[in-house]
Write a protein that binds this DNA or RNA. Structure first.
Lengths: 247, 247
DNA sequence: CGCTAAGTTGACTGTTCTCAAACTTGGTGG
DNA sequence: CCACCAAGTTTGAGAACAGTCAACTTAGCG
């Protein structure tokens, strides 16, 4: 476990463990997300097959999207072919709204079929211009993305392999479609529509290390393999896993 | 060098190396940042000493800030005392504008004195409500923060130690006060107001490893030590450094 | 001119990567 | 119906990058 600059007085002001401000806390009020209903009239439905792109990095951001069903991933590639998955997207999630000019990442369908609603950027901007509540909603959405990104930064910079996998599974449990906020955990099924390589590229590690960490979690009885994902058997064990190992 | 999921067709749509969309490219138009001048009437000036907090993580976001002079850091701490510096702030940079409800990170003065302008959150929100161009400006600012955060995620997840340090120095060169956009590089002085531990906590490594990487860069002739920072001697060498090593 | 904080360097350890092989799983076609 | 194949996953053995611990040097400051 890497211990440099270990701050002695680690007070209550700590970084949220996973992506969410309060993973099992308040039911997330999402102030005025209803405001986006005004946008619905401009939306057109689209269906994608697995691996297809909603948009590519560098492309002019002409459209934004809302996931209706299925899952997607937001992918960054560098010149060497190294890949970083910034985030996974589930039904209800927005993407492309926080791009300026061009998209900085690609968005790709993860499941066999993904249904999205596509909004023309011009319509979004025009509506935000006229209706302050829409602008506020978009600002709020961007702030939420930023908060999630920062939690991921913390995970990538300061957590050991085991901790990352455990945090990832807990986040998936909280975000997956059908996740019940405030669920006590235990016997909870968590769908993992992405392959190991995707998880690895999200967590900044190799797929082998992901596999090993999950095998260890199974041996510890924290999780159990299940069709298309895992089942959380011991939430406390999952939360504690990997602490005390960082290089 | 970690090579899993190395995508063969690494096309042109690649992640920007450092934090900036185009580090040496277009002069960054910043559409309508002038709009924030409307906010100036609500701003009050404040001076902080080194180590003092602008705000603490978890605190209600009652104020937002603009750095006038000096530098600051945005810090996340977890319960174990592990620290992650999400970003450094330089004169002209905004912070606290993208918080919803509470600040998710702390902001702390880095240099001996930091002068900031403080804006009451209520005034910011009220102005954004009435003036669409202000709302657009804030949305734009949040998008830029998000883009920077994603570039850092890529760096933390997929770059080797040497590459991280090199990318960091190049980013500092681009962002430091007095940075001339489009400067050819070579003989360029880069101020580093933060200590090694800060750099380490930003790059997700130990201060010893940061020190070793910088020593190597000096030996390679890419940089040279200079008072309060470094000097870039060979920009190309700096850009190429560390590629070909990732575990 | 000593004191403290910051930075450097060395030796050693270990977590994670790399390479490689075996094993599932699901789909296809003979 | 089952052999076969491809994609994905698991597991093992060894290497190496980066972390840990520790000593030493340098810089700043009263």
């Amino acid at each position: 476990m890497q211990a440099q600059t270990r701050i002695a007085e680690a007070r209550s002001r700590s970084v949220p463990a996973a992506g969410h401000p309060a993973p099992s806390g308040a039911p997330a009020p999402r102030p005025g997300r209803r405001a986006l209903d005004l946008l619905e009239q401009f939306g057109t439905r689209r269906t994608l097959r697995r691996g297809q792109e909603l948009y590519a990095a560098g492309e002019p951001a002409a459209h934004c999207f809302r996931i209706v069903s299925g899952c997607a991933r937001m992918v960054g590639l560098d010149a060497d072919g190294r890949r970083q998955i910034a985030d996974f997207l589930f039904p209800g999630d927005l993407c492309g709204f926080d791009s300026l000019g061009t998209h900085d990442l690609s968005a790709e369908a993860l499941t066999e079929t993904v249904v999205v609603v596509s909004y023309p950027r011009r319509a979004v901007d025009a509506l935000a211009e006229r209706r302050a509540e829409v602008a506020a909603c978009l600002r709020d959405s961007a702030a939420r993305s930023l908060r999630r990104a920062r939690a991921t930064m913390f995970l990538l910079g300061r957590k050991a392999a085991g901790e990352r996998v455990a945090a990832f599974l807990l986040e998936m449990a909280a975000r997956s479609p059908g996740a019940v906020v405030g669920e006590a955990g235990g016997g909870r099924h968590v769908a993992l529509p992405m392959i190991r390589a995707d998880i690895a590229d999200h967590l900044g590690m190799t797929l082998e290390t992901v596999s090993r960490a999950m095998a260890q979690l199974c041996r510890d009885g924290a999780i159990a393999p299940a069709r298309g994902g895992i089942e959380i058997r011991d939430r406390a064990a999952l939360e504690a896993f990997g602490t005390g190992t960082r290089h």
